[in-house]
């Protein structure tokens, strides 16, 4: 029982990071109809922006988080201008391939700068662990989880309760009608990409602090998974994407704990096959691509 609870806790912590990356991924897809495979590498850039900030600027966790988010946001802005904007309206698969080309460039470019092996991350948080009735939660894990939830809550507030969020939802529904009602599709699209990138940047810094290392190829782990999470959930409600990401984290942790770690990566794909078979538009509907 204790093992079960411990695995669930671990799974929720991993899943919260999946959720932040997958929600950003899904926001970009829903608003722009672009499968942004460079998104996980924006995450990677945010991680290294945080690394640079932690090394040269300050050891304060908050400062590093903000600078990591800014770094990722700037990268997102450049990506939007150079690649994503010209791709709008193209076949979804072509957008996937072009952004995958960007991902290859970013990963190998960073590997060239920092070497292909993981580099140590500045120690931003303590190593202390809380004991909660036998379950151990590290301070870093707790920080990672809290930050991810905060980011998700802010994203939810933005999309549900602000004017810009309403415009974003309108574009997701019908871009042409939204434009006819005076929504500036270009501006909202740019804001969406930058916001998604900044969310990824925050998550990246907290993951870097959690594991104490940063790697140029960290995006590979999150890329395919956030894609699958979006497909399983369907991109209609982004709360659905969060729920599926958390659920995937827990399922993977349980499979790792009880069956074998080699099968844990397969969980996502079995989920995908089952969902595509029974609910071909995702659990919560949509993705008319």
């Amino acid at each position: 029982m204790l093992l079960l609870l411990q695995q669930v806790v671990n799974g929720l912590i991993i899943g919260s990071t999946y959720a932040v990356v997958a929600v950003g991924f899904s926001m970009v897809f829903t608003v722009l109809r672009v499968i942004n495979f460079a998104h996980p590498d924006i995450f990677m850039l945010g991680m290294f922006a945080g690394l640079a900030a932690g090394t040269y600027v300050s050891h304060s966790f908050v400062v590093v988080l903000v600078l990591g988010a800014l770094g990722a946001g700037v990268a997102g802005l450049v990506l939007e201008r150079l690649v994503i904007r010209p791709l709008r309206g193209r076949d979804v698969l072509m957008t996937l391939i072009a952004t995958l080309g960007v991902a290859i460039m970013l990963e190998n470019g960073m590997a060239l700068l920092k070497g292909p092996d993981p580099v140590p991350y500045p120690a931003l948080l303590g190593q202390a662990a809380l004991g909660l009735g036998g379950i151990r939660i590290g301070e870093r894990q707790l920080a990672n989880f809290a930050i991810s939830l905060l980011v998700l809550a802010l994203a939810s507030y933005y999309v549900r309760a602000t004017r810009y969020g309403r415009a974003t939802r309108a574009i997701a529904e019908r871009p042409d009608v939204a434009a006819a009602f005076g929504v500036n599709v270009d501006v909202i699209s740019r804001i969406t990409v930058v916001l998604a990138s900044m969310m990824a940047g925050v998550a990246a810094v907290s993951v870097g602090a959690l594991y104490g290392s940063a790697s140029a190829f960290v995006g590979l782990l999150y890329g395919l998974k956030s894609f699958v999470v979006m497909l399983v959930a369907g991109n209609r409600y982004f709360e659905g994407v969060m729920a599926v990401a958390l659920g995937l984290g827990v399922l993977e942790a349980l499979v790792t704990g009880y069956i074998s770690s080699s099968l844990s990566d397969a969980v996502a794909f079995f989920m995908l096959i089952a969902v595509l078979y029974f609910r071909p538009n995702g659990l919560f509907g949509s993705y008319a691509a």
Partner: peptide, 13 residues
């Protein structure tokens, strides 16, 4: 590999 990625992006665009 960076050039490889760049070639792909340029052709698609």
């Amino acid at each position: 590999l960076i050039l490889y990625g760049l070639i792909i992006v340029m052709v698609v665009l």
